[in-house]
Design a protein around this nucleic acid. Structure first.
Lengths: 350, 350
DNA sequence: CTGTTAGCGCGTTCAA
DNA sequence: TTGAACGCGCTAACAG
C-alpha cells in the first residue's frame, strides 16, 4: 500500500474528529477513490482526465463541499490569479466604469481583483503597495498616480505586468491604455473658442491629471490671445460641494465669466447647482463644461457639455492587455501603448 | 555550516543560477547572518527579537528589497489577513462611503480587501463566492443581497465571521450592522403626511431593499387612507436616466402627484432634472425625496429632501465588529446586532 | 491517463 | 532570545 502524505496518515485511524480541519484534496481523493493529484487535475485541467474519473471526482467534491485552497495552489504554482487595481477613491470615481468592466472581464477569465484605494497619502500608498505585492498578484493596474519614486521601483522589481490606465505618460512603467490629457485641454479650448467664448474660468480639484488638462487649456488659450483664466483649485475628492464652492469663489471675487471648465462631471454638477441658486441660466448666462461623462452624469442638465471618455472600453482594453500578457508563451511581451481618445460632447448645440 | 532547508540543498551546489527565483526569508537570513526563523520573527513579531538582531535583519531586508510572501505565510499560519467585501456595483453606489471607511479601517489594521461585485446574476455570484472562499478570507462583509440559498450555505460552512451591512434582516447569517428599511418607509410616509402631502408617487429601481422601503411606505399611507400610490420601477443600476425616465413615465401616463419618493439620491437627481426640463418648480409644484445622502448629493438642489444614512459610521462599525471577532481569544463570539438608524432631512423647510 | 516524489515559502512548535 | 524540524495544501515534473 502506498504511503499517504500529510496528516491523515493511514486507514487505521479513527473517524478523524479533528476540531474543524479544513477539507483537502486528500479527503476528496479518499472519497473518490483516486489519488490527490488526480483530483487536482480533474478540477484545474479537466481535459487531462478521463470522463469517468472526472465524474467520480466531481461527485466527491459536491458531496464533501470541498473548496480548493488557492493559497496553497498559488504557492505551489507560483500563479495567484489575482490582479491588483489601484484607484484614488471609490466614491464618485470617474474610473467606476473602467473598474467595473475590468473586474467583470477578469472575473470571467478566472481572475480576482484586489482593490487598493490610494487616496491622498503617499506614505500610506507605499505601505499599501508593499502589502499588495506580498500577495504576489499576477498583474497590477494603476489608475491614479503612483506618488513615490520608491513605489515605482518596487513595482518594477516585482517583475509583473503593469498597466497604467487613463493616461499616456512619457515614461510608462510597462503598459499603457489611455489618452492625452494635454489634448483634452487643447481640444476643449479650441472648441469653446470656436463657439465664441472669450471669458473662461476653471474649477478644478488638485489632481495631477486634472491640472495637466487645465494647463494645456490655458496654454492653448494664450495662443489665442487670452492671457488670464481665473482658476479655482480645491482639494480632492471631487464632490458637488467642490463645484458649488468653486463657482461661488469665482463669482464672489468678482470674476466675470461666460464659461466654466470643470475637472469632472461631479464638479460640474456642483457648479450647475450653484448657478441655479444664483439665478444664472445655463448656457445663456454661463456655459459649463464637465469631464468624464460619469455614468451619463451630464444628463442632469440638458446644456451641460462634457468630454466623454469611454471608461468601459478602457477597462476592457486593460483587461485584454493583461490577459494577453498572462497567456504569452515565453516573453513575447509586446509593448502596449493604446490611445483610446475621447469625445467632445456639446449638448448645448444638439 | 548548518544544513540548509529547502531548495538550495547542500553546500556542494553551484552558485544557484536560478532563472528568476524570488527572494525568500533564506536569502535575507543569509545576508543578515541569522536563521530564517529569526528573520520571520523580526518582521512579524519584532518584540520577540533583540534590538540589534532586529536591526541587522531590517538592514538586510532593505538591501535585498525583500517582500514577504503572504501566500506562504497565510498557508502556514492559517490566517490570510484578507477580508472579502461583496457589493452590487461600484458605480454610483450608495455603499461608497461605507466601503471606503471599512477599507480604510481594515487596511490600517493590517488587513486587505478583496472586492466582489455581485451585480445582477445569481449564478455568477455563486461562482464568485466560491472563488473568493478559495482565498480563505478571514471574514466577509455583505452589502447587497446574497441571492441563492446555496451561497448562504457555503458561507455558513466556511466558518468565518460574516457581517451583513445596511440591513436588519430577520435571519442573519452571523453579524449585522444596519437599519430597518421598513422603518425608513414608515418614517418617510409620516413625515410627508405631516407636511400635508396627499398625492404620492414612487420612482424606484428593482432592488430588494428599495422595494421593501416602498412597500412599507405604501402600507403606512394606506393606514392613513391613501390607497393608490403610482409607482415606477426600473431595472438597476440606479442612474440619473432612471430618475428621468421614471418621472417621465409617471407624468406621461397622466399621474397627478405632489411628491415623488425615490429609491436613491441618484434617482432623485434624475427626477429633479426631468422636473426642471418640464418647468416644474421644486418643491412648490413637486417635492422630491431621495435616499442615502450619497456624498452629499442632495446638495444639488436646495429643496431635495432625503433620508440620510451615515455610511461612514456603518463602515467603521462593520470593521470594528470584524476586528473584535478576529481578536476574540477563544470563541467568545458575542452576537452583533447594531441598529445604526437614519436621519430624515427636509431641506425644503430649513 | 494516472500516480509518485519533491518542494513552493513560511509559521508553529518545540528544544536549546 | 534563537534555532531546527516539520508540515500547511497544493502542483510541477517526471515516471509508469
Amino acid at each position: 500500500m502506498p504511503k499517504k502524505t500529510g496528516r491523515s496518515a493511514d486507514p487505521a485511524s479513527p473517524p478523524e474528529p479533528k476540531k474543524s480541519a479544513s477539507l483537502t484534496l486528500i479527503d476528496v481523493a479518499r472519497v473518490a477513490g483516486v489519488s490527490p493529484m488526480t483530483v487536482s487535475r480533474a478540477l484545474s485541467r479537466p481535459d487531462l482526465v478521463s470522463e469517468q474519473t472526472r465524474e467520480k471526482v466531481m461527485t466527491a467534491v459536491r458531496k464533501t463541499g470541498y473548496v480548493p485552497n488557492m493559497l496553497a495552489g498559488s504557492l505551489a504554482s507560483n500563479k495567484s490569479r489575482l490582479v491588483a487595481i489601484f484607484l484614488p477613491t471609490i466614491a464618485n470615481s470617474i474610473f467606476a466604469d473602467t473598474v467595473q468592466a475590468l473586474m467583470d472581464r477578469l472575473t470571467q477569465a478566472g481572475y480576482q481583483t484586489l482593490l487598493g484605494l490610494t487616496g491622498y497619502d503617499a506614505e500610506q500608498e507605499e505601505k499599501l503597495l508593499e502589502a499588495v505585492l506580498g500577495r504576489r498578484p499576477d498583474g497590477i493596474v494603476l489608475t491614479g498616480t503612483l506618488h513615490t519614486e520608491s513605489s515605482r521601483t518596487r513595482l518594477a522589481q516585482a517583475g509583473i505586468p503593469v498597466v497604467e490606465a487613463w493616461d499616456l505618460s512619457e515614461d510608462p512603467i510597462d503598459m499603457l491604455v489611455g489618452f492625452s490629457h494635454e489634448k483634452v485641454g487643447e481640444a476643449t479650448a479650441r472648441h469653446l473658442l470656436s463657439k465664441g467664448y472669450k471669458r473662461f474660468s476653471i474649477v478644478s480639484i488638485g489632481d495631477p491629471r486634472g491640472l495637466r488638462r487645465c494647463n494645456s487649456l490655458i496654454a492653448e488659450l494664450k495662443q489665442h490671445g487670452i492671457d488670464t483664466v481665473p482658476m479655482q483649485v480645491l482639494a480632492p475628492p471631487a464632490t458637488l460641494q467642490v463645484g458649488r464652492e468653486g463657482l461661488a469663489g469665482l463669482l464672489d471675487r468678482g470674476v466675470a465669466t461666460d464659461v466654466v471648465v470643470c475637472s469632472s462631471d461631479t464638479v460640474a454638477q456642483g457648479v450647475l447647482a450653484e448657478a441655479a441658486s444664483r439665478g444664472l441660466r445655463v448656457p445663456e448666462d454661463l456655459a459649463v463644461m464637465g469631464f468624464g461623462d460619469l455614468s451619463s452624469a451630464a444628463q442632469v442638465h440638458p446644456a451641460l457639455s462634457t468630454v466623454k471618455v469611454d471608461g468601459n472600453r478602457i477597462g476592457l482594453q486593460v483587461a485584454q492587455a493583461l490577459l494577453d500578457r498572462f497567456n504569452a508563451p515565453g516573453d513575447s511581451a509586446r509593448p502596449v501603448r493604446v490611445d483610446t481618445g475621447f469625445t467632445l460632447i456639446d449638448r448645448a448645440s444638439t
